[in-house]
Design a protein around this nucleic acid. Structure first.
Lengths: 149, 149
DNA sequence: CTAGGATCTAGAGTCGGCTCTAGGTCAACC
DNA sequence: GGTTGACCTAGAGCCGACTCTAGATCCTAG
């Protein structure tokens, strides 16, 4: 009823379970310098993680999922590790990534437009074909073209 | 004044120029069966492309840019090559890709939220720091956490 | 006491998607 | 007639991000 676990210590397996990363990936990330704090070791040289590590990892996972390459993640981790004083650099890094993301989004939107358009074309074509009862051999046009955009 | 070039023939270099793909990539794509029509050959065994090929390639580029893997692109090309009669399969393939795209978009939106949030945090922090004139050593909190989401 | 399971290290292997190299052909220009 | 320069083929190499293997260590349970 008094002190609740102050520093939860987790094994690599537990961290793997709750982050979804493999134990291999966790060791790999450590090797690549992606952690803010140098992972502690317990008896027998085993890795001991804290909840903070898990939190940081979830940030990493999100950034990775949005296409941030490991080198950038490493730089970011490095800046955080250094401590206060480099906020401008962190901000720059994040802004660069934001720009990257908005680019990616607009490209995806473009692609989605194309896909939707083509889906529409095929839906119409199938509706017609079903209605008239015979194959629409006449429709040799269209493919490979952007048609009337 | 009469016949305007009916079938523009392009060399691999020209196609590379106007698609942005490298000549290597073009040969590679051909090897991988990504073309709808088997690329014709001119004198000396040189590849001859048509405008249709270029149009198809631009579609390919868009689909690739949205993360469609080569095998899927190959299947799509195969369906188109087969000609009319498999519209349902094409539609299914496109719908699958559409789903993939919308997923990707929502993941990116999530990431963008995180990044924007962190950018906000650092902007505030810098504003403060600049205002008070000394380093905010007190802010050891926050990093690696999602904070108040 | 031994068997199983989780962990350790170092390094090799995989996969996707190109990119590059080597060695050769061909046409055109000077 | 020699030198570019664009093209050809087959296959090797590369990069990113893991994943997997081998062989060792350690803890716990039966």
């Amino acid at each position: 009823m008094a002190e609740v676990r102050v520093t939860t210590s987790l094994s690599i397996g537990q961290v793997a379970d709750r982050t979804g990363l493999s134990v291999h990936a966790l060791r790999f990330y450590e090797h690549e310098g992606l952690f803010v704090n140098p992972v502690r070791r317990g008896p027998g040289g085993r890795r001991v993680y804290s909840q903070d590590d898990v939190d940081w990892l979830t940030v990493c996972i999100i950034l990775r999922a949005s296409g941030m390459p490991l080198p950038a993640l490493r730089r970011y981790a490095g800046l955080v590790r250094e401590g206060a004083g480099n906020e401008k650099e962190r901000l720059a890094l994040l802004r660069a990534h934001q720009a990257h993301l908005t680019n990616q989004m607009s490209r995806l939107t473009e692609c989605l437009d194309l896909v939707r358009f083509k889906i529409g074309v095929y839906e119409d074509l199938l509706d017609q074909g079903v209605a008239s009862g015979h194959q629409g051999q006449a429709s040799s046009s269209s493919e490979s073209g952007e048609e009337t955009s």
